[in-house]
Design a protein around this nucleic acid. Structure first.
Lengths: 146, 146
DNA sequence: TTTACTAAGTTGATTTTTTTAACCTAGTAT
DNA sequence: ATACTAGGTTAAAAAAATCAACTTAGTAAA
């Protein structure tokens, strides 16, 4: 595995996996239910077949997706997300909300289906469940396992 | 402006602005306080000077950063984030947390500075302030302004 | 006052990635 | 028999990124 960003940083290392052109959009298509090669290809409109093929293979190698034969005769595949890529949802939501705020033309909103109100991202203490104000967030070095 | 991803999707349009190689990492460097050309360059290690130069110009055109002369003699510039790019913080936090969970070697953690506990991303209703469980989140089309 | 060094880049050549376009193999449908 | 669809592959061309050298203006040291 060649590393594009050889930096000791979660963000850089995460982008080594999902930061290639089209990759996040491909995962997002599968997430919203477009599971076959052509579904994805048609929805992403301008992606080329060979690049989609390359990306799907790389994602499978990374354990981000699995491909399964859903029809033997004729052979037809469909792609499914693993937990690893489903866990990107907050990234997608964060990008969507940024777009809602800052794009000239916004296409989607994230709402509370109970109230119809707009949703915002917040930070919560994993143990106490309490909401944490921005000022109390702290990025700390994490001594890692070898 | 040539659009890389010509799709009616907040995520694609947002990635048209910040999805180019190195771009998010450059913004992140400025966010953590590395404000001069060489600060950024040295911290990103393998980025080339011309690409950094190109990206900074594009980001300035997009209103993501501003450059200011901080020394007239000799002329020295430093880059600062605008609200537009500061609002990417949830994206960075989401990427960091994904890395914390899924990278083989994780470098950083996001904690509650009061308790030292790990932080997780959650969603709350903009009006009521209540926390919203995943199942009640809904992405809806947003009729946009011309 | 020549030499070396730093900040903040620019320029041009090379390499890597992406895109474009054509092609392929099964199987289906008409 | 002909056309069409799913799910790709291959090769060539174009675009983007990297590498290496160079620039300009100022500072510092000998």
């Amino acid at each position: 595995m060649k590393e594009r960003y050889p930096l000791p940083c979660n963000i850089a290392q995460t982008l080594n996996i999902v930061g290639d052109r089209w990759t996040l959009l491909i995962i997002h298509e599968i997430l919203v239910g477009n599971t076959t090669f052509n579904d994805i290809k048609h929805n992403l409109e301008t992606i080329s077949a060979n690049l989609l093929s390359t990306r799907l293979k790389a994602l499978e190698q990374q354990g981000m997706i699995v491909s399964e034969l859903y029809s033997k005769h004729p052979p037809r595949y469909q792609y499914a997300l693993t937990k690893k890529s489903k866990d990107l949802e907050p990234v997608f939501h964060a990008l969507l909300l940024w777009g809602r705020e800052h794009l000239d033309t916004c296409y989607k909103a994230l709402v509370n289906s109970d109230t119809g109100n707009d949703v915002e991202i917040g930070y919560y203490d994993q143990k106490t469940g309490e909401r944490i104000p921005q000022e109390h967030l702290s990025v700390i070095p994490y001594e890692h396992q070898t």
